[in-house]
Design a protein around this nucleic acid. Structure first.
Lengths: 196, 196
DNA sequence: GTTTTTGAACTGACCGGTCAGTCTAAAAAG
DNA sequence: CTTTTTAGACTGACCGGTCAGTTCAAAAAC
């Protein structure tokens, strides 16, 4: 039933809906994006949207879970077995790679992450915690092992690293898409050299 | 005529509308915020919104102009007569002060700045250019005078500095509002020490 | 034969924008 | 000083369009 043809097909439809939704919402925002638009872009009937998700908000929340889940996964893979400072660089690279690959999702995240009073806010805070958690553990190890300055506030530094990577990378994609990723990585490292 | 009672009153109304709109849009986004909400919070009739602005979008654009104009102004005042490196620190401090004072506007800017395909995008790009321009001139001076590393890409570095300040500060206001601004300034400086 | 998708019609709440009319401070007329 | 006129500022009911969500019979996929 997992690898069953039917559920694979369904998963495929959901995937297409995610992709359509993510692009539209990144461009226009959640409220300005209509369910009809999403269905149209995903080349799916409107009924299908509601067969697969219980509401527009639900689709969006699942989307957030899906996207941030992938990012967190990449973070985990990136740091695996590496010593703190190397791990930190690996994290930055992983974040850049991820953002390049899922540009629209990154844009969307940047737009929604620091908003307040929206229905999905709690979901987002939780997901944020998971992703930043991976960074925080690495920073903590660095501080413990003396590789990083002891006066570093782990929570602040981790959140800052996450945010900095996000803006710089999205800024790159939006305003200077021709630059090579290596350039961007270099610029980013130049900026955060003190902690990474 | 300028200080006439009527135009003062009108200016007052516009100000109230700005404040109401900025808060609501920062929380919920442009599309999710209704003109009725804005009017209600500003304690003004809906018609008054349309008496003062030609449309909801127009109100928002004027708001952007107003807010970014103030920021750019602060930037200009901050760097006046200072040598590059000091000027750069003054810029960071000015940005933090501004964001603390106009928290909602900063949030809104963070949410909207890297969005594409919205009607007001061109306006925002222009305004962004003005604000970052002040930073860029300072960085350029620093590179020219040898105070900053010659290999620094001025455009990238300036945009990055602007973005970094914005996320770190907003993140601070949203997730750790109890921290003193000095702490945040320190963290920020620790991160960007390489260029500032 | 069961699950998934289609497609089109429909509903009702909501929302941007309009407009005819009210209020009032102050200028003009007496 | 008192009355009248003017016009800028504001009001709120209303209209037309839009959109999330529902329904369902029939087709397609497995």
């Amino acid at each position: 039933m997992e690898t069953d043809g039917r559920s694979r097909r369904r998963e495929d439809t959901r995937q297409r809906l995610y992709e359509a939704a993510v692009e539209l919402i990144a461009e226009q925002g959640f409220s300005a994006t209509t369910v009809d638009d999403i269905a149209l872009r995903a080349k799916v009937a409107k009924g299908t949207v509601y067969y697969n998700f219980k509401s527009k908000t639900d689709l969006f929340e699942e989307l957030l879970r899906h996207g941030v889940g992938l990012l967190t996964e990449q973070f985990r893979l990136a740091v695996e077995g590496l010593p703190p400072r190397e791990a930190l660089r690996a994290l930055i690279r992983a974040q850049l790679e991820y953002i390049r690959r899922y540009r629209a999702f990154a844009q969307l995240l940047l737009s929604e992450m620091w908003r307040t009073n929206r229905e999905w806010q709690q979901t987002l805070i939780l997901l944020r915690e998971q992703a930043i958690g991976v960074i925080a553990r690495t920073v903590q190890e660095g501080v413990d092992s003396g590789d990083l300055p002891a006066e570093l506030d782990v929570r602040v530094a981790s959140a800052a690293l996450f945010g900095v990577g996000l803006v710089v990378a999205v800024d790159w994609l939006v305003f200077q898409p021709d630059r090579a990723i290596e350039d961007v990585e270099e610029s980013l490292l130049a900026i955060v050299r003190r902690v990474a």
